[in-house]
Computed example of a mutant assay.
Amino acid sequence: SNPSKYDSSRVIYHDASFVAIHDLYPKSSVHTLLLPRSAKLNLLHPLDAFNDAAFLAEVRAEAAKLKYIVAKDLQRRYGRFSKQDEKREAVLNGEVDADELPVGRDWEKEVLVGVHAGPSMNHLHVHVLSADRYSECVKHRKHYNSFATDFFVGLEEFPVTEEEMRRRRSVLKQDVKCWRCGQNFGNKFKKLKEHLALEFEAWKKE
């Protein structure tokens, strides 16, 4: 379909090769998708599509652009809470004079880029999302574990073998563990969600 017919609440940008969109059911506070538009490759499983080294390099370069956009969004949303952004925020707010705006927190380190070992839709897509995994759309263990276990395959990990991908597809039923502190909640997803709300606030303040 033509991405230009959608507004910016859905489509972030598009060109002849890629479309970047906001995920309709975000699994983090900021969750975007990068969709290649290649008719030859866009219906392939990532394992097959990313066997093409040139295509993988192209996707990585484009994902890096989207990662930067997501990082800037995080800084815009949460910089005022972050200890690492205190000096930057003080300059932005006119509280302190400075010749240069302090760089502040490296929000790109808080952004995940990857695919699922078992993708949920046929069109090839790369998730570019904040690390917090905090969203009302995270409703059960499968939702959470698909982004907090080896089921999520970092784009930097490719190429990946079929054997490795098969192993990763088997981890969704693992215990739920906090992505930030590692606490194991077993199968108590509701308890994890309560904990993640606290971790979200602490993460913003880093």
Rank of each mutant, 00 (worst) to 15 (best):
S1E: 13
P3D: 04
Y6E: 05
D7G: 10
Y13T: 10
A16S: 15
F18H: 04
H31G: 03
T32M: 14
A39S: 15
L41S: 11
L41W: 11
L43S: 12
H45Y: 08
N51D: 13
D52L: 05
A53E: 12
F55V: 06
A57I: 11
E58M: 08
A61E: 14
K65Y: 08
I69F: 11
I69C: 02
I69N: 03
A71I: 00
A71R: 04
A71K: 04
K72M: 14
D73Y: 07
D73T: 15
R76Q: 11
Y78H: 12
G79H: 01
E86L: 15
E86G: 02
K87F: 05
V91H: 00
L92Y: 12
E95K: 04
V96Y: 10
A98M: 09
L101N: 00
D106I: 00
E108A: 11
E108Q: 12
V111R: 02
V115C: 09
G118W: 11
P119E: 02
H123Y: 09
H125P: 01
V126D: 03
L129T: 03
L129V: 11
R133P: 04
R133K: 09
S135I: 02
V138R: 00
F147K: 01
V153S: 00
V153Y: 06
V153P: 01
L155K: 02
L155Q: 08
E157S: 13
E157P: 00
E157H: 07
P159M: 07
P159F: 05
E162M: 14
E163D: 13
E164G: 03
R169T: 15
S170H: 12
Q174C: 10
Q174V: 08
V176S: 06
K191F: 12
K193A: 15
E194V: 09
H195I: 07
L196T: 12
A202E: 06
E206R: 06
